[in-house]
């Protein structure tokens, strides 16, 4: 296993080993989305929430992905920082905008879901607030990365920040929970947690897997783009030096 991992850590080998992977995963994701969406629309209405429960199939997987991608970002940053793997750095860079996108999607769909269910577009509920802070973490990472000119230094500074964020995320989550119990949210109609029946759980899980496959397709594709970009930059430098 370690040999496989570190073998793949060579950008050249990674590129040739995963050349077709984005296309394959993309097709798989499209198929799973087709099945997932069909299941979502044929799922029975919730006895409390009616049709709006279908928003869940878009919203919940996006929130899962937002968290999962941040942990991927943290692990990639760790490898980039400690072992100075160029590939891990490219992976971290590619993961950040994707994670921010999923988190943003979770926030927007959550807001759309909140309107019919809670009667408000935004509620300072513990979960919504922690997801918002997670989104801010992504923004900070991307802002730091974008504003340092030296590509390598930007990558390492951003990696330190990603690791600090990884340690902080559970603390933020805990503090927001604490804050929320302090404030005793008013008589908002809470999402009753009816034990989820299989006919709702199946589409949710299918959609979750579809999101995940989509993420891996996009992630690997943008790692490829990142590596090609670096090669192109190196070629330009070489040509400039030769001239």
């Amino acid at each position: 296993m370690p040999r496989l991992m570190f073998g793949l850590a060579n950008p050249q080998k990674f590129m040739s080993a995963t050349r077709r992977l984005p296309a394959v995963l993309g097709v798989a994701a499209a198929l799973m989305f087709a099945v997932g969406v069909w299941l979502s629309f044929t799922a029975p209405e919730d006895y409390q929430q009616g049709d709006t429960v279908r928003i869940m199939f878009v919203h919940v997987p996006a929130a899962w992905l937002g968290l999962m991608v941040y942990s991927i970002l943290g692990v990639s940053s760790f490898f980039a920082l400690v072992f100075r793997h160029a590939l891990a750095d490219a992976a971290a860079r590619a993961a950040a905008p994707l994670g921010a996108g999923f988190t943003f999607l979770a926030l927007v769909t959550g807001s759309l879901w909140g309107r019919p269910m809670w009667g408000t577009w935004w509620e300072w509920d513990a979960r919504l607030t922690s997801v918002l802070v997670l989104f801010l973490f992504y923004l900070g990472y991307m802002a730091l990365r974008a504003s340092i000119d030296d590509e390598q230094k930007a990558g390492r500074a951003a990696a330190v920040l990603a690791l600090v964020g990884l340690v902080n995320l559970p603390i933020v989550h805990f503090s927001v929970d604490w804050w929320n119990t302090l404030h005793q949210p008013s008589s908002v109609l809470r999402l009753g947690k009816p034990t989820m029946t299989a006919d709702l759980l199946t589409p949710l899980l299918v959609m979750g897997v579809a999101y995940m496959v989509l993420f891996f397709a996009l992630w690997i594709a943008s790692i490829h783009a990142e590596i090609r970009q670096r090669r192109a930059n190196a070629l330009v430098l070489k040509a400039a030096n030769a001239a």
């Binding site: 801010l136 900070g140 964020g165 902080n168 603390i171 933020v172 927001v176």
Partner: peptide, 8 residues
């Protein structure tokens, strides 16, 4: 960078 870390 810092304000999200100020949340807690």
């Amino acid at each position: 960078v810092v304000l999200p870390l100020f949340c807690p």
